[in-house]
Amino acid sequence: MTSIAQEQLGTLPRKPSHAPETSNADLLAYLAPAQHDLSAFPEKTSRLDRRQTSVEIRSSVSSFQDFVMAVGKRSRSVAQSAPIIILFLLAWEFVPRIATRLDLFDSTFLPPFSTVFRAFCEIAVDGTLLKHLSVSLGRAGAGFLLANVVAIPLGLLIGWFPAVERFLDPVLQTFRQTAAMALFPVFILLFGIGEPSKVVLIYWGAQWPILLSTITGVKSVDPLLTKAARSMNASTLQIFFKVILPAAFPAIFTGVRLAATHSILILIAAEMIGADRGLGYLVYDSQVRFEIPLMYAGIISLSLLGLVVNYLMISIDGLNSWKKG
């Protein structure tokens, strides 16, 4: 099964040989998480293969069939995932009870699922959850959007001019290796303890995957395509918008997906270190105040948020299907 990461690997040798090879390997490492997600949705990878191997023109009928098949697969995967999740919840319900009875550990530290679920329903009903969730979403969304708006055009530009890329690459690598969290104190100093410092932190963390995969995407566009367009007298602008941008899109989108996952991680850390609202704060605060069921309820809502974001990204990626027609 070919994954995006490997596809990148496959296209790499085509690139000009003078390009520094560090960044390729790095990017590969960066792109790799997409691998697991794609392997969960095999229809996507086969679509990529098809696009690469042939330029067949497909009718809207067959894409509708694809759509139906994809929906069928998805519902099947839901049915497949039910048993283990139910098993997990049952274990969560009964292991703490049994362990407490046997004096193995105190169930105050790991309350049974029903207790946690009750706490979750409570905060969902009285609006606490919604308040924290909206604050968190606002921060993550703003930072993530900012990263997209800044990093995609910048990446396109840098990838378009190899000399600029070669010049900037070491600096970009250094910045990328600097964990975003390390810069949080700096952002607090520069932007105060309010919202901007958190938004900037998320922007900062989210922009690197987008920037680097956009650069690689532009660099690994098949030179044949640009040459063909140029021989047909396309202007630079046309080549850029009609050839480079569509060809680089899959790579760009991989970066965007990575950035989305990354921004949630950073959001939580930032809210735990310095915030008075948000889901990360909810988890941290309820731990400090020893409201353990509430803490687990916060964790559950965070993982649901992560799942939803991931699912959204996969569905948006599915919109790519227009490209193959």
Binding site: H36, A40, Q80, S81, I84, I85, F88, T261, I264, L265, I268, A269, M272, G280, V283, G298, I299, L302, S303, G306, L307, N310
Partner: peptide, 14 residues
């Protein structure tokens, strides 16, 4: 796999 995906999506810091 579903359980692994669920755990992976749960941010570590949480």
């Amino acid at each position: 796999d579903p359980l692994l995906q669920l755990f992976r999506q749960t941010s570590v810091l949480a």
